[in-house]
Amino acid sequence: MDSHHDDPRLTGEHLRSIDAPTGTVTLVGVVHDHPASAFRVRTAVADRAPDVLALELPPLSLPLFERYAEDTRTPPAFGGEASAAIQAASTDRVVGVDGPTLPFLRRLAAALYREGGSMGTVRGVLGGLTSVAKNALRCRLAASIAALTSVRLEVDSPVSYAVDRTDSPERQAESERAQIARARAVMDTFEPSRATSFGDDVRETHMVDRLADLRGEGDVVAVVGRHHLDRVAEGLSERMGGDADSDR
């Protein structure tokens, strides 16, 4: 991304690159629906032209975001950074690397068994999983309806911010940094529940395994939530025997 080296939305704090003989995995950290994040993924995907585009989405949800990416507007009006990444991709190999999937559920069940956690933790984990699964099914249904009709359904209302894509790169970057700082402050003040942290651990391990497998197909660009970025990068570095370098 040398041609954009002065753009504050593309700093190394949001990008990690892990090299292996079979391919490079570039992780792009995002704040959901933020215009700076949408710009970052569009730029990373267009510049790197990966063999595989991986998104932090359940595979069930992916067809809806592919429909959103067919928008003639750039970036697409719906689907946030995920549809923006798909629209910018030159590859047809686009995959969702989040749960729920059967391998993810097997991993979750095994982890719960090993954990031997309280019933409260189990209920919390299963409650969160149920919510995610219902949303993924709604996305798949909306994609099916869109494929059969001219109706385009928006499953989730986009998050709104005080800036949009027409604002300067500096304002967008400042807004995004402030959003990340607020999220971190909340996490520092309020310890996440064991169910939440447990669920994140399983999701991140699952994403690491999926991305490690996908790099066998060539170069990968993976779009992940900013709060997952460092842990997924560390896990991939351990799996692939490389360093998780900040990229620019």
Rank of each mutant, 00 (worst) to 15 (best):
G242H: 01
M1P: 00
S61R: 05
D219H: 03
P35K: 11
S237V: 15
A77W: 13
V125T: 10
A133P: 00
R42L: 05
L148F: 12
G23K: 04
L64N: 07
D7V: 09
L102K: 01
H34A: 09
G116W: 15
D245R: 15
V151G: 03
R210K: 15
A142H: 03
D92T: 05
L148C: 13
G225Y: 12
G117Y: 00
P63I: 12
D243E: 13
R138C: 03
M1N: 05
D188R: 07
I180E: 15
Q179I: 02
A178P: 01
R48S: 10
A38H: 05
G23E: 08
G120E: 14
G128Y: 14
V220H: 02
A147W: 11
H32T: 06
M1W: 05
R106P: 03
V208P: 03
S193Y: 02
D19Q: 12
R114K: 11
T22I: 09
S17K: 13
A183E: 07
P59K: 06
E13F: 00
R40T: 11
A88E: 02
N135K: 14
V97M: 04
G29K: 08
G80Q: 08
V208K: 01
V25A: 07
A88K: 07
D213K: 14
S193F: 00
D7K: 09
P63H: 11
S144G: 14
G116Q: 12
A142D: 08
R152S: 15
V31N: 09
R40F: 12
G242R: 01
S131V: 14
V41A: 03
T26V: 15
A20T: 09
A244G: 08
D245V: 09
S61I: 08
T196V: 10
L153M: 12
D188F: 00
R16W: 01
R114E: 15
L153A: 08
V52Q: 07
V31E: 13
R40K: 13
P169D: 06
P103R: 04
R107I: 06
D47F: 06
R171K: 13
T24Q: 13
A77N: 10
A49C: 09
R215T: 14
G96W: 02
S246F: 02
G80K: 02
D201Y: 08
V224G: 01
H228C: 10
L112M: 14
M119E: 15
